[in-house]
Design a protein around this nucleic acid. Structure first.
Lengths: 256, 256
DNA sequence: CGCCACATTGATTTGGGTCAAGCGACGTGG
DNA sequence: CCACGTCGCTTGACCCAAATCAATGTGGCG
């Protein structure tokens, strides 16, 4: 299978340009209203400071399947995820791949660019994704003037480490059945916090489920079918399922 | 199996106290001569600044098997590894455990204490280990006066993430044989840089090898025996082996 | 319609887990 | 000093979970 999309760029569109207001003005407003801000980088900025940097921070809509950034090409910006799911992928020499993390709303990606180091992974949109692209120059500027940003940044590093370790113990430990149950339960949790109605989990492709759990697409498919027969999950449409959180948890935690 | 040693403390001894010089003086000299310094936190400090903080930074010798810090008890200090190997362990609800990282010379541990967050793992000495215990108060003090320390710290976070992702793709992906080959090759590399003579790799216990690779101790044992029969490794004493780096690499990278 | 990508299901093989026995090194106590 | 128990390693026999190989199904789209 080929490496699919190249570096993001031409294929990304600007977000809903009403063309009436100036681009800068639009961005300023978008930043002021941003619902992600308190969780992400720029919590401490005053409205006027926000307006100052906003013009340099475009938001992009990335269609599913596109590459945000690449392991080789080192980006010159951070990405803050506002909507959708991004997979961080590690391609192995033999062409197979392993997903090392899923990122969603409020997650900050490509942190390593701040150190001038290349990312050790590739970031691809799993669903349609909306991200803010924050040039490192902007980050550096703010960081010089606002000491708290360093702490904020470190917090995101911390999250990255924590999730990486969790990923290992959750999705690379125990039997396949167990791991699958954990994945579904986790996906449920992340979904549930976002949307209030009865949470229907959006599943990645079987290949991707396999790359998350370190199993083949066939086993992934079989397990999900099996879960469906056991009533653990309930298919609502092609890619969405309702899950029985409680019973999944039992399987996830079972010692056998 | 019981959780073994409690939090470090009584069982650790101060390093070689010649009792002639004052403790503070000893530590100051130790810091000035430190061979780890350029790689770790305090690169940028002048000798006099170093002397200032040195008294607050004890170095400890931790015997193999002891616990440096615990997942629950959140430490109030960072640890810089000067000698030996530390395993970072994640204990699972069913009593089994998984090793999520090995730390050695120049690695900085318990970074999360700087954020006031508990560590998500337990750190145990795999061999006898020598560490510097840097109280967070010291780190904070230096950080206020020296801006570069933040960058330095972030660098170590970066290492932590990088190693975590590498761990996943190296030791939790592919067949057991392949993973074992990768582990031995990696251990070889780390060994080789430290000691110049023909590098003999020091292996962890079979249980620990299992906890690293996500396999049972029996499979670990079988694989190593098998490697020995194939001449891939050569037992020199109870726990040390010479390895055939090249042939291991082949196995590690093979698609099958 | 017919193509293509993806999902499902089956048949078969195999890698690795499990259970169990034997073995050498070490420390402790008689 | 040797007997004994313990602990970690090795090896074998057996079995099951998951990989592999392969066929069929299904939905979307030009």
């Amino acid at each position: 299978m080929s490496r699919m999309g190249q570096l993001a760029g031409p294929s990304m569109q600007k977000c809903s340009s009403t063309a009436r207001q100036s681009e800068a003005g639009r961005r300023a407003q978008r930043c002021r209203e941003c619902t992600v801000r308190q969780n992400a980088l720029f919590v401490g900025l005053s409205p006027s400071e926000l307006d100052e940097i906003a013009p340099a921070v475009p938001d992009l809509v990335v269609p599913a399947g596109e590459t945000l950034y690449d392991a080789e090409t080192h980006a010159d910006a951070l990405f803050i995820v506002r909507r959708g799911v991004v997979k961080l992928v590690n391609y192995l020499p033999d062409g197979s791949y392993r997903i090392v993390r899923l990122a969603r709303r409020t997650d900050v990606l490509a942190l390593e660019t701040l150190l001038g180091e290349p990312c050790d992974h590739t970031a691809e949109a799993l669903t349609e994704v909306e991200v803010c692209r924050v040039p490192i120059s902007v980050v550096r500027t703010v960081m010089e003037r606002q000491a708290w940003l360093s702490t904020r940044m470190i917090h995101h590093w911390h999250l990255a480490v924590q999730k990486a370790h969790g990923w290992l113990t959750h999705y690379a430990t125990g039997g396949a059945r167990q791991r699958m149950a954990r994945l579904l339960a986790d996906l449920h949790d992340e979904c549930a916090s976002a949307e209030s109605p009865r949470p229907a989990v959006e599943l990645p492709s079987r290949d991707d489920v396999g790359a998350i759990l370190g199993i083949t697409k066939e086993t992934a498919s079989r397990l999900i079918s099996d879960f469906r027969r056991s009533g653990l999950v309930n298919k609502v449409d092609a890619r969405r399922v309702e899950v029985d959180r409680m019973r999944l948890e039992e399987i996830a935690g079972s010692d056998g």
